[in-house]
Simulated assay, not measured.
Amino acid sequence: MLDTTPLLDAADHFAAALRAAPQSRLQRGAAAEGLALARELARRAQHVETPGREPRTMPDAGVFVVADQVQVAGRDLAEALRTRPDAEGEAVTEAVSLIKAAHRRAFP
Rank of each mutant, 00 (worst) to 15 (best):
E94S: 12
A87D: 02
E79I: 03
L35F: 07
T93V: 15
P51F: 06
G89K: 08
V48T: 11
T50R: 15
E88C: 10
G52A: 07
R25P: 00
V48R: 12
G62N: 08
D60N: 14
Q27E: 13
V63A: 13
G29S: 02
G29L: 10
A36S: 15
A73P: 05
A30K: 06
E88I: 10
Q46C: 01
D76N: 14
A101W: 00
R25E: 13
R28Q: 15
D60P: 03
V72S: 13
A78Y: 03
P51A: 08
L37N: 09
A87E: 04
R28C: 07
A78M: 04
V70N: 04
L81K: 02
G62W: 14
G34D: 03
L41H: 07
T93H: 14
E54G: 03
A42P: 00
I99Q: 02
V63S: 11
E49G: 07
E54K: 10
L98Y: 11
G29I: 03
A32D: 13
A91F: 11
R43N: 07
H47F: 09
E94N: 11
G74L: 00
A80I: 01
D60M: 05
V92K: 03
Q46R: 06
V65P: 00
E90G: 10
E49F: 06
E94P: 03
V72Q: 06
A45F: 09
E90S: 13
R25I: 08
R82T: 03
A30P: 00
E94L: 13
A42M: 05
R82D: 03
V70T: 09
H47S: 15
D68Y: 13
R43M: 08
Q27Y: 09
D86M: 10
R39F: 07
E79W: 09
D86P: 02
V70C: 01
S24D: 12
